[in-house]
């Protein structure tokens, strides 16, 4: 198949790569660029493990072709600005709440949650569950994930820890 050159803007850096026109963005990010935080789960846009932010909106990288996203800003979990050079505040919240077990779903969960809190300053637990329904976790049972997102929203509002 014909390969074509694309420039992908990922986490603030521009990458040039040659891809087949049918190369999924997911495969370009994970296999070609070695980004281990963007993961293949279902290939149908259902499970959320390949969630990335495309110009700030959560999308499934398994349902986009690499050739479609030239000129767009792609953010993955590792591209999040770290508050203290170690971790992003949402990572701290997940860690403290014990909201990850195997960790496979965690990057997608965090990116989806970030976009939610960006739009909704004070999400209810129901808002969080509604937004995260497209991110499947097979370990935690979700309660701690919802706790972590609630805590993150609370911290982001700047009133310290959740009461």
């Amino acid at each position: 198949m014909t390969k074509t050159q694309v420039q992908l803007r990922v986490n603030g850096r521009t990458h040039e790569l040659w891809v087949g026109t049918n190369r999924l963005l997911l495969d370009a990010l994970h296999d070609d660029l070695g980004m281990a935080d963007v993961r293949y789960g279902c290939g149908e846009g259902v499970c959320g493990t390949c969630t990335i932010l495309l110009d700030g909106e959560p999308v499934s990288a398994c349902l986009l072709f690499a050739v479609q996203v030239e000129g767009r800003e792609i953010t993955t979990l590792t591209g999040l600005p770290a508050a203290d050079a170690e971790s992003h505040p949402i990572q701290d919240c997940f860690l403290q709440a014990g909201a990850a077990q195997c960790g496979f779903c965690t990057p997608g969960m965090m990116l989806t949650a970030l976009a939610l809190v960006e739009r909704t300053e004070r999400p209810t637990r129901e808002d969080i569950r509604y937004e995260l329904v497209g991110n499947l976790c097979r370990c935690t049972g979700y309660t701690k994930i919802v706790d972590a997102v609630e805590e993150y929203a609370c911290r982001r509002r700047g009133n310290g820890s959740h009461d």
Binding site: P58, V59, T112, N135
Partner: peptide
């Protein structure tokens, strides 16, 4: 409709 990613695209 769908999930947040489906609604975005």
């Amino acid at each position: 409709i769908g999930n947040v990613r489906v609604r975005a695209r």
